[in-house]
């Protein structure tokens, strides 16, 4: 069985770095791929970027920011859920917005978990740790 790969789409470099490092500190040593916006991730799924080919036999977990240029996280989520081979990939929304309408929209579109990025760093670490737990579950 192939090891689970984590795909992060995040336009903010700082956030991306923080997530990656915190995940590692939480003991998640899975391969992490970072995409600078939704379009880059979508290109990856649709095999437009050859060096990092998407393989449907692999196990993936997607972490999505919502507000990204070119293609928003919501758009990526919607497209994934409409595509047969991507439907089953668990998607976690990780964003600064805590607008309940936004959260509802994400769950409606079929995201597995919605996590608000907390400003408090300790909270942030806790959140990412919990994320780690989910990732472990998904691995099972």
């Amino acid at each position: 069985m192939n090891k689970l790969k984590i795909l992060i789409a995040e336009d903010d470099d700082g956030h991306a770095l923080l997530i990656e490092e915190t995940l590692q500190e939480a003991g998640i040593f899975n391969e992490i791929f970072r995409f600078r916006d939704g379009k880059e991730l979508w290109d990856f799924f649709t095999e437009k970027k050859s060096e990092l080919a998407f393989d449907s036999d692999n196990h993936y977990l997607v972490l999505l920011d919502i507000n990204m240029p070119q293609m928003s996280g919501l758009e990526v989520l919607q497209k994934m859920k409409e595509t047969e081979i991507l439907k089953k990939i668990p998607v976690m929304m990780l964003t600064t917005t805590d607008d309940p309408r936004e959260i509802e929209k994400c769950y409606h579109l079929g995201c597995s978990v919605y996590i608000t990025k907390p400003i408090d760093f300790n909270e942030f670490i806790k959140t990412v740790n919990r994320l780690g737990l989910f990732i472990q579950v998904v691995k099972v």
């Binding site: 903010d12 700082g14 956030h15 923080l18 507000n67 964003t95 600064t96 917005t97 990025k117 907390p118 400003i119 408090d120 760093f121 942030f124």
Partner: peptide, 12 residues
């Protein structure tokens, strides 16, 4: 959202 995003970084 937009103001929060840099705050997360500064805090982090």
């Amino acid at each position: 959202h937009d103001l929060r995003s840099p705050l997360v970084n500064i805090q982090g």
